[in-house]
Amino acid sequence: MSEEKNNGRMSIIVRTIASSVFPFIVIFSFYIIMHGHLTPGGGFQGGSVAASAIVMLIAAYGYRKVDERVKENSLACIESIGAIIFVAVAFVGLFMAASFMYNFLVGSPFFGEIPHGGNTGILNSGGILPILNIAVGLKVMAGLSAVVAVMALSAGEKK
């Protein structure tokens, strides 16, 4: 029956559209993550959007196809790396400056611009916030997609 033939793939139209939309979602999620301190969004929101992109691939191509390229263990490792970046930045605040989670980059040359009032947005402002955004985004993306992937794998095994 169709289970063997399709092997969990959707129809060709869905697959093509999923492929074409994929970079759009990915770049948009990067935009959300990077501009988290300027526009609505941030690490978590962007990460969940990126995870949704991976979920879309899982839905369109079936778990097997995605599993060939991304293993859930490596996703777990990426997640660890994101978390480690977060804690490490916090610890840099402790050891180099004043306290845990201290925003030590505000006022420093590169990330330190301080805007005033309503403006159009300065990307390199915000001190450590962009770094934390990226860390959380990495973490959430890897984590949520790992959850869905593992659950899909487990559900597929049973049948």
């Binding site: 609505p40 925003n103 006022g107 001190g127």
Partner: peptide
């Protein structure tokens, strides 16, 4: 904090420790 988005500055600076906890929850 130098960020335009006050919510982000609350999430990552004023209450950054909560966000660390949140990241830990997800992990």
């Amino acid at each position: 904090t130098g960020a335009n988005n006050v919510v982000t500055s609350v999430v990552f600076d004023y209450r950054g420790y909560d966000t660390l906890g949140e990241a830990t929850v997800l992990f």
